[in-house]
Design a protein around this nucleic acid. Structure first.
Length: 504
RNA sequence: GGCGCCGUAGCCAAGUGGCCUAAGGCAGUGGAUUGCAAAUCCACCAUCCCCGGUUCGAAUCCGGGCGGCGCCUCCA
């Protein structure tokens, strides 16, 4: 099966072949941990997860690495030489003022003046969210989820190499990458040097221009003893630039040339452009990642998500019901965020969430019916099975999820004479979708039961059965109303009434 | 101003030159079923932003409009 992906580097869909025949090396730009990750972040992370899962089902071993940016970068970092306020400092202040996207748990952070504690707290929150949403790499922390602060030495080593190779220079306590030393600079984004220069009008301060050889030169290290997080270096005590960590960690974990590098579209420039310049400058290769893949931005109800518009949602906001007024099952949020094509802006809406809930319910119930019929024993199938084949072929066309789902639903609705075989097929499909259940899952990811709720759900169902047996319709209707108002879907059947929690 | 993505039913969305008299999901409508519902099953529900061109043939290619969005500056 031929796999095709859109490559930002070439602006076209290309045939995908990993460097090694069987293993794919893939790096994804991960979160900064100054706050809770929002649904836009997760759209991008789940896009990477989807690539990984698809490649795995297609027969590849995937070594997927993601970074955690826990270095306190400056708010006006890249343009200049680190102006603005330290992000970690902002995080600390906001935490104290209770202005975070969500409340930190009481007592979770002993000392809000310690940036490492802030970072540790939000890292933990991120990993918890990521696991709930079925992001495989989150289950591989810490071996495949790397912390920037653990690679300062390697960053300094790469900076040293870049200076030695003539790609970087120190000026007034700042080490800059010299973009003119790298002719390929601008290839990824189309922001070639002449254009960067032309477009920079007014934004680059005179002070900065005086120290930089070219206005687009970007920071690798800044000596600043006042910075909260700081490390010793030959260039003075200070902190690294915000692009260098990815170059370093990707190289360290995956090698000099990798297969796939993912991120949100906003990272194309300057972040990924700079990563390429750094890595290639340090390795001497003309390539860093063979495929650069970027997810487009997520909109909320047709508008760009922003705190000021009040349409800003963290993953835990959604799961907790902030948008819908009712708790949302993680599989529903996952499905909603992966169901549309990654290269189109996705519009996140409450209605879309409800649609996804119906779809996910269908998948979960189908899975449950197969489990019941087979006792969980699946037959053996491989990718040549007609349903799987069509499913994977859709995905192999630049991750055409909609096309793939267009295979799954009609198949589900059809006849299943051999439930063992169907279960095997479904399991494979679910290795990619990971919604029925979320895999690998923790706890009650698949459960639709209302255990531990304030309502005695099972008792009410039995009471309803009794009332129906007595033909006491008004009593039965009252019970149904009670359950529905509490967020349950109620189904009567000859085998007894069943109430399941609404998914969203 | 530069670079790029996109425009298919009420909504999401596949299809990229002839099996398209256009998948699939959600919603909706009619029917079966039901005490009534829900779930389920059956049926129905679009000529593809506009204009021009290429072609025997276009949603699909080309040109021009119009509209939406992104990046170029912290951002997934």
């Amino acid at each position: 099966m031929e796999i095709r992906f859109y490559n930002t580097l070439s602006h076209s869909v290309e045939l995908f072949h990993p460097i090694d025949a069987n293993e794919v090396r893939m790096y994804s730009c991960g979160p900064t941990v100054y706050d809770y990750a929002h649904i836009g972040n997760f759209r991008s992370f789940l896009f990477a997860d989807l690539i990984r899962r698809f490649l795995e089902v297609s027969g590849y071993r995937v070594h997927h690495v993601m970074n955690i940016t826990d270095v306190g970068h400056m708010t006006e970092d890249a343009v200049a030489d680190g102006g603005g306020e330290d992000k970690m400092q902002v995080a600390m202040r906001k935490l104290k003022e209770g202005k975070k996207s969500g409340k930190a748990q009481e007592g979770a952070i002993e000392n809000p003046d310690d940036p490492y504690q802030i970072a540790a707290y939000f890292t933990k929150a991120f990993l918890a969210d990521a696991k709930r949403l079925g992001m495989k790499v989150a289950f591989e922390h810490p071996q495949n989820v790397l912390h920037a602060t653990a690679y300062i030495d390697e960053m300094l080593a790469m900076i040293r190499d870049l200076i030695e190779r003539g790609h970087a220079y120190a000026a007034q306590g700042v080490v800059y990458y010299s973009v003119e030393s790298f002719p390929e600079y601008g290839k990824l984004s189309g922001n070639t040097l002449d254009k960067v220069q032309a477009g920079s009008g007014g934004r680059v301060s005179e002070e900065e221009l005086a120290t930089k050889r070219h206005p687009a030169d970007f920071m690798l290290w800044k000596a600043d003893p006042r910075h909260i997080m700081k490390w010793d270096s030959p260039y003075g005590q200070g902190y690294p630039g915000w692009h260098i960590e990815c170059s370093v960690m990707a190289r360290k974990a995956l090698g000099d040339v990798i297969d796939i590098h993912t991120g949100g579209e906003d990272l194309i420039f300057p972040h990924h452009e700079c990563e390429i310049a750094q890595t290639c400058g340090a390795t001497g290769n003309d390539r860093f990642a063979n495929f650069w893949m970027h997810a487009r931005f997520l909109m909320v109800e047709g508008e760009k998500m922003s705190k000021s518009k009040g349409n800003f949602f963290t993953a835990r906001d959604i799961l907790g019901g902030k948008a819908t007024g009712r708790a949302v099952h993680p599989a529903v949020l996952r499905f909603e965020l992966i169901k549309s094509h990654y290269r189109a802006n996705m519009n996140f809406t409450v209605k879309g969430l409800a649609d996804s809930a119906s779809a996910v319910r269908k998948l979960i119930e189908f899975r449950q019916s197969l489990d019941e019929k087979t006792g969980g024993e699946a037959a053996t199938v491989d990718a040549s099975h007609p349903v799987l084949k069509t499913f994977l072929e859709a995905l192999s066309d630049d991750l055409n999820v909609s096309g793939a789902l267009g295979v799954v639903f009609p198949w589900i609705a059809g006849d299943h004479p051999d439930p063992h075989e169907s279960l095997a097929v479904f399991q494979e499909i679910n290795c990619v979708l990971s919604v029925a259940p979320i895999e690998p899952f923790e706890g009650d990811a698949i459960s639709l039961e209302g255990e531990g709720e304030e309502l005695p759900v099972n008792d009410l169902c039995r009471q309803m059965d009794d009332a129906r047996a007595r033909k006491d319709w008004s009593a039965a209707d009252t019970i149904r109303k009670t359950l529905q108002d509490a967020g349950y879907e109620v189904r009567n059947s000859p085998n007894g009434t069943v109430a399941t929690r609404q998914l969203a």
